[in-house]
Amino acid sequence: MTRGVWNLCANILELRGVTKVFKTGLTGKPVVAVDKVSFALREGEILSLLGESGSGKSTIARMILRFLKPTQGSIIYRGKDVWRLQGREVLEYYQEVQGIFQDPYSSFNPIHRVEHHLKQALRSLADGKKNFDEDNVIREAMERVGLNPQNVMGKYPHELSGGQLQRLSIARALLARPRLLVADEPVSMLDASTRVDLLNILAELRDEERMTIILIGHDLSLAYYISDTVVVLYRGSVMESGHVDEVLMRPKHPYTRLLLDSVPQLDKKWEHRMGLENGDQDYDELSKGCKFAPRCPKRFDKCEETPPLLTLGSRRVSCWLYADRQS
C-alpha cells in the first residue's frame, strides 16, 4: 500500500551509517551521540531499540522523525532519503510516519484542551478532508485506544492521568493513518500496572493493520513482550541485533549479557553479587576501539581496535570474540 511519492520496498525504513555529532559546552567539544548506526525494518515488524542513557536511542528517534539532521549517513523511507524531502513531501512523510514521546505531560500544550491536538492533526494530515464529522472521527480514535471520549473531551492535559494522555498521543498519531510509528519510551513514565495495556494497543495496531513500529526503551522485559527484533545500543553504537529470542534469550555480546544480568525479574532473585563496578574510570575519555571494552570482563588486546559488525546466523554482533566464527 503506497500513497504519494513512496515506493514499495523490501524494507520500509533503512538507516545507513547514521552518525550524529553534537557540539557541547563553550569549547564546542564534539560528542558522538550516534556512531555509524545501520539497521532496517520490514513492513509490519516491531523493532526495539534498547539502550541505557547515553546510548543515542532517542537521538535516532528524533532523526527518523526529522527533528534532528544526521551529521553523516542517510535514513531511507520507502526508497526516499528522509532528509532530502521538500515542501509538500514533508507533510506526506508525516502522513506515513508518526511519533509519540516519553513524557505525556509535555507532549500536550498545557494551554490547549486535549482535542485541540487531535484536531490539528486531523485537519492537516487526514486524507479526503471535509467529508467527515470532525468530532466523530476524534471520538472514534479515542475509543480505538481504549478511552471513553466523555471522560477526556474538553479536558486540559493536567486534568488527565499520564496513561490517558499517552493513549491520546497514540490516538493523535493514528489520525494520520501512518504506516510507521516511532514510539520513544512511550511507557517509561507510566505506572507499571498500565504499561502493558499500552503495549497491547501497539501490538493490536501491528496485528490488525500491519503497522510497523519502532519502540525505543531501556526495559528488556517490555521489549521482549512486544518486539520481533531488537537492536542493542551502547554509547551510540550497535552492540548486537537480531531476533528477540536470539538476542535476549541467547545473548552473545558481553554488554547484552551484562544488561540481562542486571535486569531485575520477578521470577528469579539475584543469586550472586555482581560486585560493585570500579568507579575509577571516565568512560567518555576512552573512545578508541570497542566502546564497551573498558567495562568488559572479556576484553583482550584486539579490543583496542573497533570491532566490525559480524553476522552470526540471523544476528549481528559487534565483538572481537566472534571474529573467527563469522558465518
Binding site: S107, F108, H117, Q120, S124, S169, A173
Partner: peptide
C-alpha cells in the same frame, strides 16, 4: 524543542 511543539510539527502545523 518541547515535545508539544514537535507534536504540532508532526501534525503538519
Amino acid at each position: 524543542n518541547r515535545e508539544f511543539v514537535l507534536v504540532a510539527r508532526m501534525s503538519g502545523a
